[in-house]
């Protein structure tokens, strides 16, 4: 499999705080790559780098062989149309119904008729297990349903890649399982690439093709699920075991 995206020697800082230092990472095309790490380690920043919402202070971000580091906003808009983004808190627009939220990218970027849009929106919502909620507002749905509506909006245009920011955080085990299955199913349906930022190790073991562990601004471990679970790196082992004892400062 080829490389969908490549972060090359990337440095990012927020004010005085260095979040990434010479970080290099490949995102494999057609695979689900999960990024793990401590809270505040900069995992979500990786997703924002990949769709150009954040520019690195130095280094390069290559997506589909295009260097997007210095890309103009107009060109980034084109790029973003090919990348779905499911936000941590879904970021659905409160003033729009679920149907309108999911339909928005179709209305803005395609010449589809109203009937075609309605049909595709219904089918996409159905594919994430949300039938007949088009007329409801985000505030009227449960946390898990809102997450899935966010997934639907991210994938309704059949993007080449989907970025998921903490898709299962704060949800019960059953909904977590449902969402994990949804991510796997969507990846198969779209035949595309997925990058998932998560703390939820059980879900990650189910869905990940590759895992990258971010620690102190760099990727300290990268590999398949088995390789990461068997990693001799004490940082990885402490994180996976949730142990207070080890090289990770508490």
């Amino acid at each position: 499999m080829g490389v969908y995206a490549h972060l090359d020697d990337v440095c990012v800082r927020y004010g005085e705080k260095i979040v990434m230092q010479n970080l290099t990472l490949d995102i494999v095309e057609g695979a689900i790559t999960c990024i793990i790490g401590l809270s505040g380690a900069g995992k979500s920043t990786i997703l924002r780098l990949l769709n150009g919402l954040k520019k690195p202070d130095s280094g390069r971000v290559i997506v589909k062989d295009q260097d997007i580091t210095e890309m103009r906003e107009r060109d980034l808009i084109e790029l973003r149309r090919s990348i779905g983004f499911a936000f941590q808190f879904s970021a659905l627009f409160d003033s729009l119904t679920i149907g309108e939220n999911v339909a928005l990218p179709l209305r803005e970027h395609t010449k589809m008729s109203d009937a075609e849009i309605r049909k595709l929106v219904a089918a996409t919502l159905d594919s994430v297990g949300l039938a007949h909620v088009e007329a409801r507002y985000p505030a009227e749905l449960s946390g898990g349903m809102v997450k899935r509506a966010g997934f639907a909006r991210a994938v309704v245009t059949s993007p080449q890649a989907v970025l998921y920011d903490e898709p299962t955080t704060g949800l019960d085990p059953i909904i977590t399982h449902v969402l994990t299955d949804t991510i796997v199913n969507l990846r198969e349906r779209l035949n595309g690439t997925a990058v998932v930022v998560s703390h939820d190790l059980e879900s990650i073991y189910i869905m990940a093709d590759y895992i990258a562990m971010l620690f102190e601004g760099a990727i300290v471990a990268y590999g398949t699920v088995d390789e990461i679970r068997r990693s001799p790196n004490p940082i990885v082992q402490q994180f996976l075991q949730g142990s207070e004892v080890g090289p990770i400062p508490i």
């Binding site: 924002r48 769709n51 919402l53 808009i77 084109e78 973003r80 149309r81 990348i83 779905g84 983004f85 936000f87 941590q88 808190f89 970021a91 659905l92 627009f93 409160d94 928005l104 990218p105 803005e108 970027h109 909006r153």
Partner: peptide, 11 residues
Amino acid sequence: EQIEALQSLGL
């Protein structure tokens, strides 16, 4: 994050 959501939708 709704503003970022708009941008991520290419809007």
